[in-house]
Design a protein around this nucleic acid. Sequence first.
DNA 1: CCCCTGACGGGCG
DNA 2: TCGCCCGCCAGGG
Length: 116
Amino acid sequence: MAKAAPSKKQDSFFEDVWDVVRQIPKGRVTSYGAIASYLGTKMSARMVGWAMNAAHAASTIPAQRVVNRIGMLSGKAHFGGNRMQELLEKDGVKVENDKVVDFEKIKWDPAIELAL
DNA sequence: CCCCTGACGGGCG
DNA sequence: TCGCCCGCCAGGG
């Protein structure tokens, strides 16, 4: 329906966040802050989490690969039960006590990986 | 229009 | 080293 919008204004950085999350390789994880920093909103990691909330509704977004800075499955509750952990383990990511094992080792930083 | 909450992060005590 | 508080941005009541 021809919304005739002069410019979509990128639909906010939400799509940008999803695009980054979609590029996260299997077996790798990243943090909200890393994505926020890559987008330039490093001070507002919360917004990344907010985008994830919308991403969950859209599906097709491996939001389970996005955890907080300590590698804890902070958004696990939003997946329902231990769905997030199961998805991560299926990706080859070991999770223990709601936390990613060797998080620092498998951490995927978009500011570095996508900088290439 | 004002107030509160939220999947975070960093600083200070 | 652990714990508490403030800051950012946007949506909902």
